[in-house]
Simulated scan of single mutants.
Amino acid sequence: MNVHATGDLKFTGLTRPDGAPLRLNDQEFVAIDRYRNAKFEATYRPQALYNRANEGFHANNETFLLHEVATNLPIYLPDTGPTDFHLHLPPGGFQLVLVTSGAFTFDYDGRFYNVGPGAVMLQSAIVHRQLFYTWSGLSTEENLKTPQTVVPDPISMGYSGKFLEAFITDPTTFPNPTIVGPDQINEAETPRVAWSHSLHDRPVDAGFWLQDPLALDALFKPLTDSPIKSAMPVYVRDIGIEAPSGHLVAGHIIATDPRGQSLLSKSTSSAADTTCFAKGEVVIYRVIRGTAEFRNKTGETFELAAGDVVTAGKNATSLVGVGENTQVLRLGLLKGMNDLRSWTPTQRDEIDGLAGQIITQKDIRPLRTEGKPVGYLYG
């Protein structure tokens, strides 16, 4: 038995987050992050560069962070390799990942997930690590220029791995404890530890979520009687995160095919639910590829291109047009986020310091590929 299944579980003093309450911006604001002003920085790991939507983050009272993660070096280097086993503990138990190029292998509590463009994962407080990603070998400048997509075509899967990632609040303000360090990982043993402590302020309904881009629930549905003008038919995919997020965030992708091609995986058995455009006290649009046109309350229009992000109050702006071969991620931040509180710095540091001691549940599986993650989300 190694460190995966050991640890002193006798600790006390942990409480639920009791810091400042989170508050969405309820004003009619519009904040735009332009890709041309992006600053890609190795904020957390040397292998990845992060492009934060800072204008929207600050305008929305720093309650929700969306950033692009671009892998920029091979995952195996002499001084660093795959991530250690760790947890993220953001307010509300929320971490969203949408893969937009390349291919990844993630290990969630002992089960491997091989994912490519269009895959959606939502989880928190599950012991996990990143084991593999594709790397093109291009220079940083050229690597950052490679296109992103939510369609798992062979070309996009050959690029360096990229994904969009979102947290409620900034990852530096909540606990991110390392449970098993890289020098203690035994690859021959199935990791079988998970968080089941009750201290976190997650919604009752929250859970682990994985949506494959080719699954039936991920098919794009036609937007009929569309308020969005386009030379091409407009389709909508519900990425399915509203329920597993504990009704904190709704997510959809609005997209069009390239002219003369059928690129998107579609279902024509039913139309898209147009009520999705009404969801959100605060709304975030991120253009993954193509162009999108928006109109604000005064009737003025503005256009976003690939990599641009707009964060706005509920009725401050609306999507009115999309170009051909366009894909736009829409996130609606729901009222439940106002019921959350942040961690205090003391709480954050205490839990980060506990590391493996916070593990209170074990699960032994016959194979890595069997069973759901047993994190506290299933406790």
Rank of each mutant, 00 (worst) to 15 (best):
Asp238Asn: 14
Ile239Trp: 03
Ile239Thr: 10
Ile241Ala: 06
Ile241Cys: 05
Ala243His: 11
Pro244Thr: 06
Pro244Glu: 01
Pro244Ala: 07
Leu248Cys: 08
Val249Pro: 05
Ala250Pro: 00
Ala250Gly: 13
Ile253Asp: 05
Ile254Phe: 03
Ile254Lys: 03
Ala255Val: 08
Thr256Gln: 02
Pro258Ser: 12
Arg259Asn: 06
Gln261Asn: 09
Ser265Phe: 14
Ser265Arg: 14
Lys266Asn: 11
Ser267Met: 11
Thr268His: 15
Ser269Leu: 14
Asp273Val: 08
Asp273Thr: 09
Thr275Ser: 15
Phe277Gln: 06
Ala278Met: 12
Lys279Glu: 13
Gly280Pro: 06
Glu281Lys: 13
Glu281Asp: 12
Arg286Val: 00
Val287Thr: 08
Arg289Met: 09
Ala292Gly: 10
Glu293Ser: 14
Arg295Leu: 10
Asn296Phe: 03
Lys297Asn: 11
Lys297Met: 12
Glu300Pro: 01
Glu303Val: 15
Ala305Arg: 12
Ala306Val: 05
Ala306Asp: 04
Ala306Met: 02
Ala306Arg: 04
Gly307Asp: 07
Gly307Arg: 07
Val309Asn: 04
Val309Ala: 01
Val309Pro: 02
Val310Asn: 01
Val310Cys: 02
Thr311Asp: 01
Asn315Ser: 12
Ala316Tyr: 02
Thr317Trp: 04
Ser318Cys: 11
Ser318Lys: 14
Val320Ile: 15
Gly321Ser: 14
Val322Lys: 03
Glu324Pro: 07
Glu324Ala: 13
Asn325Phe: 09
Arg330Val: 03
Gly332Leu: 01
Leu333Met: 10
Lys335Cys: 00
Gly336Gln: 10
Gly336Pro: 07
Gly336Trp: 08
Met337Glu: 01
Asp339Cys: 09
Leu340His: 01
Ser342His: 09
Trp343Ser: 04
Pro345Arg: 10
Pro345Val: 07
Thr346Ala: 15
Thr346Phe: 14
Arg348Ser: 10
Arg348Ile: 01
Arg348Tyr: 02
Asp349Met: 12
Glu350Met: 12
Ile351Gln: 02
Asp352Ala: 11
Asp352Asn: 15
Gly353Asn: 15
Gly353Gln: 12
Leu354Phe: 13
Ala355Thr: 12
Ile358His: 06
